[in-house]
Amino acid sequence: MVQSNHTHAPRPVPSPYTGRQDIDLDVVREMLSHFTYNDHEEAQELILSACQEINEHFGWVSPEAAEIVAEHLGTTTTRVFAILTFYADFRTEPRGHHHMLLCHGMSCYVMGSNKLVQTMKDTYGVADGETTADDQMSVQVANFCLGVCDRSPVVKIDDEYHGHVTPESLTELVNRAIEGKHSMQENEATHG
């Protein structure tokens, strides 16, 4: 028999940004309905959190979603966009089917992450914030630290962390992530 002190605890790993998603405005409205406030000051404090949540769920924030945020919190779309374009976490364009966080923290830099940044540029033609032409992989070069420094340089593709990455293993990881999706589709096709 397994006893756990709190059986209701949610799984602690958040899995934002995975996969390409179009923005369903009803979902946005539903999310925002949980953002309640008592006065205008509190409403303004919620703008960033609201954008954050939408961004984490869909991987980006569209102008329409920004408009709904502005309406709900009693401000203007311009102001919401001013925030979206200032803070590095936000994206105003959809991500690829896969998303890579390439850690460029100091530890990863010292251990060679700039070679990985270069590999992504040379092999796939993508820099920070860009998506490959076939929409398969978008890259975010993390200007902070993913906190897995004993394995640096580190990349996180979708939900999975990979440590001690070299330019060679990086291309392998990217290809595998992209092909993984393809082969899954092929499987469905053959068995469907």
């Binding site: 959190s49 925030i83 200032f86 803070y87 936000f90 200007n143 902070f144």
Partner: peptide, 10 residues
């Protein structure tokens, strides 16, 4: 207590 999150700006 209010918890507020930033958006990745140093």
């Amino acid at each position: 207590i209010r918890v507020r999150t930033g958006g990745g700006a140093y």
